[in-house]
Simulated scan of single mutants.
Amino acid sequence: MDLKAHIRGIPDFPKPGILFYDISTLLRHGPAWNEAVRRMADIVAAKKPDVLAGIESRGFLLAAPIAHALGIGFIMLRKPRKLPGAVLGLSYALEYGEDRIEMQADAVEKGSRVVILDDLLATGGTLGAGINLLQQAGADVVGAVTLIELTFLGGRSRIHAPFESLLSYDE
């Protein structure tokens, strides 16, 4: 199945000059969504993780069903002030400013094998920060997986873990 046929490009979103790769069209097509999750689960399973980490919010849509399919746990990496209890956080630079990502301080055991998932790798800032945060918490990040990689933005160079994407766009 051609999964790219189920992803729509929306020009000038969220700002002029940006082509947004909208996965909502993939999500609402049951057979395509099922195929995408199955293929990503195969990639993730090969890394033998103990737990999956998903980045808010579209990363949750991938990590949760894959963790369920593999019978392992799922942890959330979220925007600031969204998680209860003690949190660990990391601020990072984006191409248009700064952001922060947090996780619960007790979300991952030291030495746990973690695969981190998100919907898209663009410049690598968010995924790279997620990897760094997990490593600071003592996790062994054995992989990073995305549904889409925008290869022309060079984000892979900021990912310091084995990286794979299901789909790639060269421009």
Rank of each mutant, 00 (worst) to 15 (best):
N34D: 14
L52Y: 05
L134H: 14
H6F: 13
L166Y: 07
V37M: 01
G54W: 00
P11W: 13
G97N: 05
G125M: 06
V142T: 14
L94K: 12
V37D: 04
L90T: 01
L88F: 05
F13I: 02
I101M: 00
S112D: 12
I66T: 07
A122F: 10
Q104T: 08
L52C: 03
M76R: 04
V87R: 12
A137K: 08
K48A: 15
K48C: 13
Y92V: 10
E171Y: 08
V108R: 00
L133E: 14
S168L: 05
I72G: 10
L117Q: 02
L27P: 09
M1K: 06
A129L: 05
I55E: 04
L90P: 08
H160M: 08
S157M: 05
P16V: 09
A107P: 03
L117G: 03
M40D: 00
P31R: 00
A144I: 05
Q135W: 15
D170S: 09
A5D: 14
I148D: 02
S157Q: 15
P31L: 01
P49W: 05
F152H: 08
A36N: 02
R78E: 00
E56D: 04
I101R: 02
S168V: 00
A129E: 13
I7H: 01
A105T: 10
A32W: 01
L19I: 07
D140V: 08
P11I: 11
T146S: 05
F152I: 11
D42S: 08
M103P: 06
D119S: 05
T25S: 07
D140H: 12
G111A: 04
L94C: 03
G125V: 04
V115I: 12
R113P: 04
E35D: 09
I101A: 00
R38W: 04
S157E: 15
D118R: 09
A46K: 13
A36I: 00
G30V: 08
L27Q: 09
A45P: 06
